[in-house]
Amino acid sequence: MIDSKEPEQLVRVQANAGRSSGPDPVRQTIDLPGHGSFSVLRWESDASKPLLVFAHATGFNAGTYRELLGPLAERFRIVALDQRGHGLSDAEAEPDSLRTWDTFRDDLVAFLEHLGEPAFLSGHSMGGRVAMLAAAARPGAVRGLVMIEPVLMHPNVSRLLATARRFGRPPPNPLAQGAARRRAVFGTRQMMFDAYKGRGAFATWPDPVLRDYIEGGTRDMPNGEVALSCAPAWEAATFASAGHVFWRPLCRVRCPVHVLYAEHESTLRGDVPDLIRERQPDWRLDLVPGTTHFLPMERPELVQEAIRQMADG
């Protein structure tokens, strides 16, 4: 169970206009010894309901997924973590120190240990892979896992990237390069919304989801402007450190697993789904037609149903 905090440490996050059904979450700060201070969103519910822990994608934050997670509060107690260097978490995030996503795995494992009970895990993109790594590291703490568009590269690609990085010659990474160039400061959150709406990665996002991303991923500056709380340099470092070899941990996952992946621009490219099936024949892998890497924003009802079925199964 999550430790109770004093009332002043709990902040109810208000809903945006046009929001779908679902209760408002509470924001809570949790200190994980040896890891730092993390911000989480928690949907309060009956203690008899199962626990669901959600991990977000690179550059995003827990609040980005309020539209996805809110309706699930009828079935689960839900906690979504702002990962290191993201959202409103204050854990140390020095870009030069980030080598692999094992850093995020260790944070999530510590968080699961803090919760003190087995949980269902789910995650999008980086969050899906980090959740998988945590399930491999602490099998007794994970009851089931739903990964949405997880970053699972072909084993040859991951080995090549890991070897190149070991010798100090990593190949160019377009995602990292693009993240490093991101504009970090805007005059207002509305100006940020206007700049993002319908463009680039946000092209298929509904307005409430985009507003949640901005609300959960910005900080007020002393001069009245707002800045991205995930610094472009940290986002770039996160993308650049994605190539660490992970196929052995994948084979150590023992809980039920359901993977949803997109038809277009998916992180599960080529024959990667078939390779996963060879190594984990009991896993369920479903391609979702007409979707992109931002499947949770485009088809949240399918993700919600997959999570419900995992708990029911």
Results as ranks from 00 to 15, higher is better:
A203C: 08
R169I: 13
V157C: 00
D271N: 15
F54M: 15
A15T: 10
P249L: 01
E67Q: 14
V79Q: 00
I2D: 04
T103G: 13
S89N: 03
R77Y: 03
P23M: 09
T103M: 14
A80V: 11
G243F: 06
G18S: 06
L81R: 10
W234V: 12
W283T: 06
H264I: 08
V272S: 07
L10K: 09
Q177V: 05
N173C: 15
A62S: 12
L287E: 14
M126N: 09
A184K: 11
R248F: 05
A17I: 12
G128M: 08
A91N: 14
L98K: 12
E94Q: 14
G140W: 00
A164P: 01
R138Q: 11
G70T: 12
P170L: 05
R166A: 14
I148F: 01
L112W: 08
V185E: 12
Q309V: 15
E298W: 04
R308I: 15
E44F: 03
W43D: 06
C230Y: 01
F76Y: 05
P222V: 01
M191G: 13
R99A: 13
A262S: 10
F294D: 14
C230L: 03
T58Y: 06
F76R: 03
P208N: 08
R77H: 07
Q309C: 05
L152A: 05
D106P: 03
L295Q: 08
L268P: 02
R279T: 10
D106M: 03
A162H: 13
L115R: 08
T291Q: 06
P172T: 04
F246L: 11
G178V: 01
H244D: 15
G63M: 05
I78W: 02
A93C: 10
Q280V: 11
S48K: 12
R189K: 11
R279D: 11
Q83D: 00
A15W: 00
L69Q: 07
M126V: 04
W101T: 01
P232Q: 14
E301A: 15
R299C: 08
R138H: 00
R99S: 13
A179T: 11
P171W: 07
G178T: 09
A176Q: 05
N223R: 03
L160G: 10
V303C: 15
V226M: 06
A135C: 03
R211I: 09
V13T: 07
G270C: 04
